[in-house]
Amino acid sequence: MAKVKYYYDSENLAYRKIKTKKRHKFAYLVLFLVASALFGFVCFVALLNTPYFDTPKDRLMARQIENLKLNYEVLDKRIEELSTVTAAIEDRDNNLYRTYFNISPIATEERKAIVKDPNRYAELQGYDNTKLVATTTEKVDILSKELAVQSKSLDAILKMAKEKNKFLSAIPAIQPVRNENLKRMASGFGYRTDPFTKARKMHEGMDFTAQTGTPIYATGDGVVAQADATASGYGNHVVIRHGYGYETLYTHMSKYNCRAGQRVKRGDVIGFVGSTGRSEAPHLHYEVHKEGKVANPLNFYYGNISAVEYIAISQIANQENQSLD
């Protein structure tokens, strides 16, 4: 039962009921409803900002964050594995590949160096998992730098390997005539007796005796610079420029089997033994030039003879006998 309120009427000396007007009742009701709604809204906002009340969207975002965190941890482990593999490649690069080609190793600081910028990861700061994300990002940057340096190093080594194969193919490394039994060596490099003047003079090549028509082989890859009989005393002769400072000369041929400007490979037949020019008997006079200076051809016969054969041919070549030209 609602309470009845009274007021004292001093004129009539009596208590009278307080009658509330309908419009006042309606105003009170509206005020109450507004206050209740405002209070409810404030409580709702307060609940939204507490960890005790999550909306479906909040729960979805939380799961996504945990999933991303897990992915970062997996990525971090993969980066560690890749770093281990990269370190092994770098070790082989420094201690095997670069050593083989006589190149200075790349320092670890150079391989792992990245630009030191305090603001480099500024956009990653201010989050719950900032440390994890920033650390992983830095590892990726370092790994990328290592791979870039390693790729550049391997490119340089590959280029040198191709160049070295080319260089090894160009060196005059075989005997210019077949000499299985080592009996074709007639005269070696050094001072010998001239067959015509009988004077002792420098013999700048090696003489191989053979029947006329015996094939003569290019001792290394190169380009034929001369194939003619214009040089005095050489008769029919061939000059091959191998590059890298090497040049070989083949003289007294019965005929040549190449032309100037022709590219030849080691083992190609470039002519045939003869006795043209200043020659006492059918033979091949063979010379090796390095950087414009004559070199002992004996030092280059590693391509087709064994160590024992090398010693035997060396003993024959070093005998001071009479040359054939």
Rank of each mutant, 00 (worst) to 15 (best):
Y121N: 11
E73S: 04
A46I: 10
I240D: 04
I65T: 02
K21G: 11
L13K: 14
K116W: 10
A122H: 04
D91S: 09
F101P: 12
P105H: 06
D54G: 03
I313P: 01
E309S: 10
K17F: 03
F32C: 15
L132I: 13
T214F: 06
V239C: 03
K290N: 06
Y100G: 08
R111W: 06
A88Q: 13
V149F: 14
S279I: 02
E73W: 05
I313E: 15
F101S: 05
V288N: 03
I18R: 02
N304L: 08
T20K: 14
P105I: 12
S169Y: 02
L168P: 01
S36A: 15
Y301M: 06
Q64K: 13
S279M: 02
L13C: 01
Y28A: 04
T251S: 05
T248L: 03
V269S: 04
L147F: 13
D117V: 15
G261V: 00
L29W: 02
H237S: 06
G271F: 02
N321P: 07
R120M: 15
Y127G: 11
P215L: 08
H285C: 07
T137R: 03
Q64L: 02
A199V: 08
K21Q: 07
P176C: 04
I106H: 01
V34I: 11
A161P: 02
K293N: 05
L324I: 00
D93M: 15
M61L: 03
S10D: 08
G243W: 00
L143I: 09
Y191N: 08
K57Q: 09
S144Q: 07
Q315M: 05
E90D: 09
Y244A: 07
A62K: 10
L29V: 13
R59A: 00
A37T: 08
A210K: 06
G235A: 08
S169H: 14
A14L: 01
I142S: 07
Y191E: 05
D141V: 05
S232P: 06
L158M: 04
M160L: 15
L143E: 11
T84C: 10
L33D: 03
H283T: 03
A295E: 07
K290W: 15
L147R: 10
I313L: 06
M61I: 12
K131L: 10
V42I: 13
V223Y: 05
A186H: 14
L68W: 06
I103H: 10
Y250L: 02
V238A: 02
Q125M: 14
